[in-house]
């Protein structure tokens, strides 16, 4: 899977976590905030994991915006 696609999914995970945590923690059920917190943690684990997995960067990986390929 392309790095940009993975980051799009991470962004969606963070977006989904926000209402789940708010609703779940305020009015329940508890499983909602737990799910939201889980999505938040998974989403935030991915970018450092990509860094560690891709060091050195794999050929064909798209550079981030404005970044020259290394």
């Amino acid at each position: 899977m392309r790095k940009s696609t993975i980051l799009d999914i991470v962004f969606l995970l963070l977006l989904a976590a926000l209402p789940l945590i708010s609703i779940g923690a305020t009015s329940g059920p508890e499983i909602l905030w737990q799910l939201g917190f889980g999505l938040l943690i998974i989403g935030l684990l991915v970018p450092p994991a990509l860094r560690l997995r891709n060091a050195p960067a794999q050929p064909g990986d798209e550079p981030d915006v404005g970044e020259e390929p290394s």
Binding site: A17, L18, A25, W33, G36, F37, L40, I41, L44, P48
Partner: peptide, 26 residues
């Protein structure tokens, strides 16, 4: 991740508090 771990291990922070803090940060 470091802030969450230090919060749990050294500042007695429950998971729900971390979740709410994470939601507010978002």
């Amino acid at each position: 991740l470091v802030a969450g771990l230090t919060g749990i291990l050294f500042f007695r922070t429950p998971l729900q508090t971390l979740a709410v803090a994470g939601g507010k940060g978002l």
